Amino acid sequence: MDDPNRPLPSPVGDSDFESRVLKSDVPALVDFWADWCGPCHYIAPSVEQLAAEFNGKAVIAKLNVDDNPATPEKYGILGIPTLIYFKGGAEVDRVVGVTSYQELAARLRALMPAA
């Protein structure tokens, strides 16, 4: 059963991408998606699980490419889903297409400061 208090990925757009993602003090993962994209819906539960697991340790966000065309153009998004990892305001990794939760989480853990 879904927990209604479970953290969800934050919606971001062209207007707040810089302040919420690039200027974040913690690593960020942005899922570039669209409502009509079947693979985007397929990977969504994994992104939601990342939001719960990394709550407070990373920004997990979703950007709708149809509603926010400037940011995907800036980052050369040619296919979706595309998930881009950011750290210190710069792109550090990118995954295109459906990828396992384990792979997505491992790439995010690699950006975390050593404990």
Rank of each mutant, 00 (worst) to 15 (best):
I80S: 01
V26E: 09
V26S: 10
A70T: 06
L8K: 15
P9E: 05
N64Q: 07
L111Q: 14
D2E: 13
E103K: 09
V12F: 02
E48H: 13
I43C: 13
E103W: 00
P69H: 02
N5C: 05
S19I: 15
P7A: 09
E91L: 00
G97M: 13
W36S: 02
G76I: 02
Q49E: 14
I43V: 15
L104M: 14
L50C: 04
C37K: 10
I84N: 03
A51V: 04
N68D: 07
K23V: 07
V59G: 05
Y75P: 03
I80K: 04
G13V: 11
L108I: 10
A115M: 07
A34Y: 05
V98H: 13
K62E: 05
R6F: 04
R6T: 09
M1T: 11
C37R: 11
R94M: 08
L104S: 08
E103N: 14
A114I: 00
V26D: 05
S100W: 06
D93G: 15
L111Y: 11
I60A: 07
A115V: 05
Y42D: 11
I60R: 07
L104F: 11
D25Q: 13
M112P: 02
E73R: 08
I77P: 01
R6Y: 00
N5Q: 14
P27L: 12
A34E: 00
L83F: 11
A90P: 01
V95R: 15
P7H: 10
R6S: 13
W33T: 11
E48D: 14
S46I: 08
M112Q: 14
V98P: 14
L29V: 15
P72K: 02
Q102K: 12
E91G: 01
I77N: 01
N64P: 04
A114R: 06
P7T: 09
E53P: 00
R6N: 07
V92N: 07
